[in-house]
């Protein structure tokens, strides 16, 4: 198939960006979206131009590195997938595709389509863990966890930290990302002792880093490639309520 691409190009953090238009021919519908961009970059380098910079690594939907805003949607026009899992069969011959980076105050553009998501690391450093030193844990079967709890915790833990939720949210809130971690740990008995402190510390960090607040639009859930549910935000609010009640 033949395509026209409108791609965001931006030299560095400070530069002003712009859209560039490229045309591509003979793209196989079986190739992935990123393989299509590989072909574009091959073409650019062959013409002695700099390739389009975009983030990617595993190319199988699990590392959370890829992060493109395609035709106005985070991770493009398919459900429950990351950009790297999007295949060209979702497009038609002759289509024009607009490709942008995540746009959010918390995620400054580094170059072209690559953004800085280190704020996510900082939120988790604030408390997104269970404090257990190596070697001090007791036997795994000494902690019984009902299957449905373990499953629900796993649902929340599936977050890949891609940032699509932030990019989609009109307030650029990181609430779904943050709530998924709070839920993952709070649902497990091992995670309970620190649950309140954890929620409080992470929310404070998120506010400090300039992410917007959550107004429950639910847009994040729709674009989350891992189907993280907004129900986790409700759980977080509960933890946070308790956090505020306690000194």
């Amino acid at each position: 198939m033949d395509l026209t691409l409108k791609v965001w190009r931006q030299e560095n953090r400070k530069a002003k960006g712009r859209f560039e238009t490229y045309s591509l021919k003979n793209i196989s519908p079986d190739s992935s979206f990123l393989e299509m961009l590989d072909v574009l970059n091959e073409q650019l380098v062959n013409g002695n131009n700099e390739p389009v910079v975009f983030d990617h690594d595993c190319r199988e939907g699990i590392c959370g590195t890829c992060s493109l805003f395609i035709n106005g949607r985070a991770h493009g026009p398919d459900e429950d997938i990351t950009t790297c899992q999007l295949h060209m069969r979702k497009f038609k011959d002759g289509d024009t595709i607009v490709i942008e980076p995540w746009r959010a105050g918390g995620f400054p553009v580094i170059k072209d389509l690559m953004v800085d998501r280190s704020a996510f690391d900082q939120i988790l450093q604030a408390g997104g863990f269970i404090s257990v030193n190596t070697g001090s844990a007791r036997d795994g079967n000494n902690i019984l966890i009902p299957k449905h709890k373990a499953d629900e915790s796993m649902d929340a833990a599936a977050c890949i930290g891609c940032g699509a939720c932030v990019a989609t949210c009109k307030n650029s809130s990181a609430m779904l990302f943050l709530a998924s971690k709070v839920s993952h740990l709070a649902l497990l008995p091992q995670g309970r002792p620190e649950a309140v402190r954890r929620a409080k510390a992470m929310v404070a960090k998120m506010d400090e880093l300039g992410f917007g607040s959550c107004t429950n639009t639910g847009a994040c859930e729709v674009e989350c490639p891992k189907g993280i549910s907004v129900a986790h935000i409700a759980r977080l609010n509960r933890e946070f309520l308790i956090a505020n009640l306690k000194p």
Binding site: V132, G135, R138, G140, L144, P146, K147, A150, S153, L185
Partner: peptide, 22 residues
């Protein structure tokens, strides 16, 4: 064996059976 204990301690949501065991 210690690895499994350590990971459970950290909150790794390993699959469990209906009795709550790993």
């Amino acid at each position: 064996n210690q690895i499994i204990d350590q990971c459970v301690g950290q909150g790794v949501p390993f699959a469990r059976d209906y009795g709550g065991y790993l």
